[in-house]
Design a binder for these strands. Structure first.
Length: 133
RNA sequence: ACAGUCUAGUGGGCUGCCGCUGGUGAGAGUCGCAAGAUUCAAACUGGAGGAAAGUCCGGACUCCACAGGGCAGGAUGCUGGCUAACGGCCAGGCGGGGGAACCCGACGGAAAGUGCAACAGAGAGUAAACCGCCAACCCGACGUGAUUUAUCACGGCGGCGGUAAGGGUGAAACGGUGAGGUAAGAGCUCACCAGCAGUCCUGGUAACAGGCUGGCUCGGCAAACCCCAUCCGGAGCAAGACCAAACAGAGGAAGGUUUUGGUCACAAGUAAAGGUAACUUUGCGAGUGAUCAAACGAACGUCGGCUCGACGUCUCCCGGGUAGGUCGCUUGAGGUGAUUGGUAACAAUCCACCCAGAUGAAUGGCAGCCUCCGUUCGCUUGCGAACGAAGACAGAAUCCGGCUUAAAGCUGGUCUGCCAAG
């Protein structure tokens, strides 16, 4: 995956399931936007955040799906890894079919749309952490 | 140059920064007595396509099955060649289309059998008779005439009958044209043509072509069943092989060891006494063995009066095997450039070259510049600017040979036609 080494990815089905289950039992955080769904597990160890991607065939053919994944990874590498609230989290990003416009092309401001979602996630994550200490 | 035809190639380039992944790996850490194992890692270097796609054929490879043969089922279907093989390719034949270059064709069998043919039409298969055409015989009513007064003759009409040339229907109607022939007609006869047959002749490896001879006119559909010929075992890299936590099941083995203390036996040695001495006696006694007790450890618990035995737990070994990992995994029917053979597909020989190997799945992101194309605008009409994801189709997943489908541009070559010019 571009931008992210293996230690920063979710590699097994177990990791994905654990992350997705965490938001169902209330410990994780879930953000739903028009183009993305973000799910973050509670921070575990003292290590960088890890990213998992889910892009279904509904989004498009393999060229389109690859393009979406690369854009998300690049944004994760450049912007999200350095964010303190995400340390130790497992983050799963689910792309939604609205990412692709009617001509079958990926939208240009995919990173802008993702930034909008991520900001909401960071706000929600840092909120309780401030109140805890 | 225009319109076409066939065919080959290409599928942006350069630079910077930040990344991902395979290989090599300076060096560093951890574990280990060591051998080694393992983690991190600078630097260098490889990293999508012509279709990687559809998964439609054919193979390689792997596992399973398999004496041999047949049936069923499937695929293919002009001939010859190429190939590992093919439903592919090349060359040829035949049929069809086009003015031509050229293109298209499941292109074996309908005289083995079964079956099918909408609508229209008279008739759709051992054909049929609607409009037509038609001499005689026969039948009917009518008319005219004759007389033997209920018969005869003649006439047209109708029926019976003959006919399949013409009209009409259809995708298709039992050869075509001409002549003879006839009541009218008809392969009824003849000539030519078309088709058919032949143990014929010539050319060709063959499909087939040309000829000769013969009699004859026998419809279509096999992408309907079917017949004939040829080929085909099944599943697939999530194949399969290996390592292996956990784990259940099954088989085997050990079932005792250590420490402390007591008692007994043996005992190296040592001390004392006696003896001139050899030595004798007594005491102490490391250590060894047996047994008892306790502790640790697990050989303990349950069944049983006890032994044998059974079961459970525990230890070790063998075999199985999930998670996970390693291999398979990319050097191959590979390929550059020559030469030779062949019309060609292709083959042979020599020779550079090594060219993705991921696995929640890399091959990218952001800038800048240069050309290409499109759209819009401006005007100096061939230049400038802006915009468009360099802009189409599209992303390797065991590997090859094909086929099919998708698609912006750009570049070359072959041949054909036509106007004008030379």
């Amino acid at each position: 995956m571009p931008g992210i080494s293996k230690s920063q990815r979710l590699l097994t089905k177990r990791d994905f399931d654990a992350t997705l289950d965490s938001q169902q039992n209330g410990t994780g955080v879930k953000i739903v936007c028009r183009d993305f769904v973000l799910v973050a597990s509670p921070p575990a160890a003292d290590r960088p955040a890890r990213l998992g991607l889910i892009v279904s065939r509904k989004v498009g053919n393999s060229v389109v799906r690859n393009r979406v994944k690369r854009c998300v990874r690049e944004y994760f590498r450049n912007e999200l890894v350095s964010q303190q609230p995400l340390n130790g989290c497992n983050l799963v990003v689910i792309a939604r079919p609205s990412l692709v416009n009617q001509e079958g092309r990926v939208k240009d401001d995919i990173q802008g749309s993702l930034k909008h979602c991520a900001d909401r996630l960071l706000k929600k994550l840092s909120g309780p952490s401030k109140s805890c200490p």
